[in-house]
Design a binder for these strands. Structure first.
Length: 149
DNA sequence: GCCAACGTTGGC
DNA sequence: GCCAACGTTGGC
């Protein structure tokens, strides 16, 4: 899960009550499908800082509530307002996440790219712009081990 | 249904 | 700040 640290960083999440927040503002169908269909309660995800000086994975979060309608899409005054999302048939969804822990160190995008084992990660593919991306179990375990390098 | 124009993302 | 990638929009 990607977030721009200038907008919402892992430290912002850590400061939240119960270290929990909802992940709103997803307005891309493929990312929406991941949120709606793939992210289940108790699943873990990497928290990734993007669009910053040194992008990379900075922490682990847990899905604590599965997909429910993204209410910011219904609010005309909200910057994520989407008139095409009908409350009766919501187009956009969000999940709640809770910070499990920050990584001991940031595992930068630059570092991830050096590992052949991670070659197929969506995050590392050229032109990728999705803010929610799948990680395989194999990739997950591999990355977790890098933390102690 | 095609596709040019346009806006956004995000690494560098 | 640049610019490639790419999703969306809208005229036809």
């Amino acid at each position: 899960m990607k977030s721009e640290p200038d907008v919402f960083s892992i430290d912002d999440l850590a400061k939240n009550k119960r270290k929990t927040d909802h992940w709103d503002g997803i307005r891309n169908y493929e990312a929406r499908n991941f949120i709606r269909d793939e992210m289940l309660k108790c699943d873990l995800a990497f928290f990734h800082h993007s669009n910053c000086k040194d992008p990379g994975i900075v922490g682990i979060v847990e899905i604590v509530r599965e997909a429910y309608p993204d209410i910011t899409a219904f609010d005309p005054t909200h910057k994520y307002y989407d008139p095409k999302s009908d409350p009766k048939h919501p187009r956009w969804f969000m999940v709640d996440i809770r910070l499990t822990r920050k990584l001991k160190r940031k595992i930068s995008l630059r570092e991830l790219k050096k590992h052949k084992a991670l070659r197929d990660m969506r995050l590392l593919k050229r032109g990728n712009r999705l803010s929610i991306l799948p990680v395989t179990a194999k990739q997950w375990n591999y990355i977790i081990k890098l933390e102690d390098n």
